[in-house]
Design a protein around this nucleic acid. Structure first.
Lengths: 117, 117
DNA sequence: TCAATAGTTGAACAACCATTCAACTAAAAA
DNA sequence: TTTTTAGTTGAATGGTTGTTCAACTATTGA
């Protein structure tokens, strides 16, 4: 007898599904990974991260550079901080943001490789 | 006089902005890169790609494995095909999908590294 | 030829997200 | 102290997107 699953499908190659299921980490890890790569899934944020890989920048500079409001930049930077991708040092009123994770430059590099091949 | 830009900001460090602008590729490249990483920005798609990195799979198997409908899987696979991340071979009615780009495994590996540190 | 099944497609919908606006805090300059 | 400015925050909004459903194609087997 075929085993019915949660959806409208028969399991055609049950052995393969079982084998893969055995090798695969729990769902939460994929949620975390997806949240990481979501940060690279927006052109504006991608440019922001690439800019920071060239030079540290304050919120105003980034706003001018990206052509969006300071508020929008600040919201994006907050997300990036929560994902541990950027950090900042404060000098008076000015917050200088920079990259906080070596993976960021690697990911950007892979991105350029992929689209240019 | 401070130079006014498109938004509510003064350019605080004009030299830096100019220097970074000079080093940076045109917007379209960031759009392409963002579209690439969008594919990794969803837990379900992330699992799908990771599964395919372990073994080729057909649409039905993937649907059972992921716990979503065949239709949903097919939609996802179409996006992934358009991004040149997966390919398939057909055997009768069955379409066996597999990874089409070496970068995929690298990106997944970086993802695991980031969340496990 | 006819029924069953793997896969695709488009419409519909709910959830998510990037941005703006307005109001706020805090530090520097006047 | 008062004003200006860098930055943050929360609500509102328009656009995007992941999923399902229903209808379809195409291949296999009876």
């Amino acid at each position: 007898m075929e085993e019915r699953a949660c959806c409208d499908c028969d399991v055609i190659h049950e052995e393969i599904v079982k084998a893969v299921k055995k090798e695969v980490p729990p769902m939460e890890e994929y949620v975390s990974m997806a949240n990481l790569f979501k940060m690279f899934g927006d052109p504006s944020r991608m440019r922001l991260l690439h800019a920071l890989s060239i030079h540290e920048m304050c919120v105003c500079d980034l706003a001018v550079f990206l052509g969006i409001t300071k508020s929008a930049v600040s919201h994006q930077l907050k997300s990036l901080r929560l994902s541990n991708l950027v950090k900042y040092r404060k000098e008076g009123q000015v917050a200088f943001y920079s990259l906080a994770d070596d993976h960021v430059e690697t990911i950007i590099k892979i991105g350029f490789e992929h689209i240019r091949e």
